[in-house]
Design a protein around this nucleic acid. Structure first.
Lengths: 249, 249
DNA sequence: TTCCTGCGTTGCACAATATGCAACGGTGAT
DNA sequence: ATCACCGTTGCATATTGTGCAACGCAGGAA
């Protein structure tokens, strides 16, 4: 679409991984230094990028402001936050995530860290695998049929563990079950020894607007034990849906 | 420099203020709908922008991730954080700010909220007025002489209160005093009834890399009382400078 | 000293790329 | 039925972004 803009966005994404020099940026974009320079200068003028005294480029301060603004524009986050915290407490301090569908991906919008010192690879703003997480399944299952098909066709069924769903056929079955029962499971399909359950948040019209999941390491609770958390999960998502429906009043 | 990129950045900045339609974006950029559309589509493809079901454009989820990445790339923030918290506690729960100079402006990098329920107009990521805040004075006073002059020449001495420094002449005096005494004051120059003191954080070479300030409403402490906080402020900034110098080991 | 290597910058010629226009296709409100 | 609003498409034009080559500058090595 817009080549130069698209390149500039790639620069920002790359700078998100760490500082770069002009030549490094130019090399990874596969463009001439001149081109990279002008993009960087434009970004710098609006504080999207900053240069340190060693001439290395970093993400600029404008992104702080936009980052928090972006968070507050996902209004569902504010509505859900107290419920997420409560859900985490009720389930014994497990990790709780809120995610929403956006543009072919599921994105974590909020996270309550587990009180058990277990590391999970997730972070607010990063995408969640659509085929290997409970929130991913819930969000895809809630898409209108047309879009759903397109999205599933675009999924790379890359395995994370030995239990990751390997293909579209298996995935469609899971989606059907998810719709029937109103919640989804992730049985160590994304990270070994971690089971999750997830359920949808819906708006007044019944459309899925977000998904909530609870993640529990095997050592704390076996898979059946995690399933037993579903009623509490559903109570939370229903409460969020209710708050969401009544928000503008 | 790069026109299309620059326009796209304006879009992001504007979306930071709230949702917009395609026509609104095109109007405020003063370009044709087509142009705005292609920029928005490119931004959307990389999740910098998202469209809701009513076709309104919002900031996208990529900005969450970049926002937090940008914060963590300002390493001074992590070094300073514990000291800021302690300083706030030592001074009786006052508001404490950390700011750094970037590209002609001072930007708030971190903030400890006051425990008194006083609202201050500041937020992480937003710029601080160079001529009307303690951090602004400290940061400008610490610039190399050449750059300092250029920056002062670019300042718009817009008054915020009746005590705001009105011109460059007065400002230069204040900068000289700031350098001599090693700290700066803001005597209700930015917000009525709020006094601040600020001091620099320096690197190994003595260059100013950031500034810390304490802000106190008149009702809590008069101006002399705020000045009495300077020793604690300096202790904090010196501790941060020391940590900063020894960080890479 | 001199020679590197790595960083960013400038000026210029070319054409690829972004732009504006005009017309179209929806959807929802009046 | 009509209007207002929102987004989309195709196309001709020249503005705009691009690549090249040469330059400046600093720091380190020899």
């Amino acid at each position: 679409m817009s080549q130069s803009l698209s390149r500039a966005l790639q620069i920002l994404i790359e700078l998100g991984e760490g500082e770069r020099s002009l030549d490094q940026v130019a090399a990874s974009l596969e463009v001439h230094k001149t081109t990279a320079m002008r993009l960087l200068h434009t970004l710098e003028a609006d504080r999207f990028v900053r240069r340190d005294d060693r001439q290395r480029y970093h993400l600029g301060s404008r992104l702080f402001a936009l980052g928090t603004a972006a968070l507050s524009q996902h209004a569902i986050r504010d509505v859900a936050q107290p419920h997420l915290t409560r859900l985490a407490a009720e389930t014994g301090g497990q990790a709780v995530h809120l995610a929403a569908y956006e543009n072919g991906t599921a994105i974590y919008l909020a996270k309550v860290e587990s009180t058990h010192s277990v590391r999970m690879y997730s972070r607010v703003g990063l995408p969640a695998a659509l085929h290997a997480t409970a929130v991913g399944k819930v969000l895809v299952a809630g898409l209108p049929p047309g879009e759903q098909e397109a999205v599933v066709a675009g999924i790379d069924f890359r395995p994370f563990t030995s239990r990751t769903i390997p293909d579209a056929a298996g995935y469609h079955e899971v989606l059907a079950r998810t719709r029937e029962q109103g919640w989804a499971e992730d049985a160590a399909e994304h990270e070994d020894f971690i089971n999750c359950v997830g359920a949808p948040v819906r708006d007044e019209a019944g459309r899925v607007v977000a998904a909530v999941s609870v993640s529990v390491p095997d050592v704390i609770l076996p898979r059946d034990g995690v399933r037993a958390l579903v009623p509490q999960l559903l109570a939370a998502t229903e409460a969020i849906s209710a708050d969401w429906a009544g928000r503008s009043s």
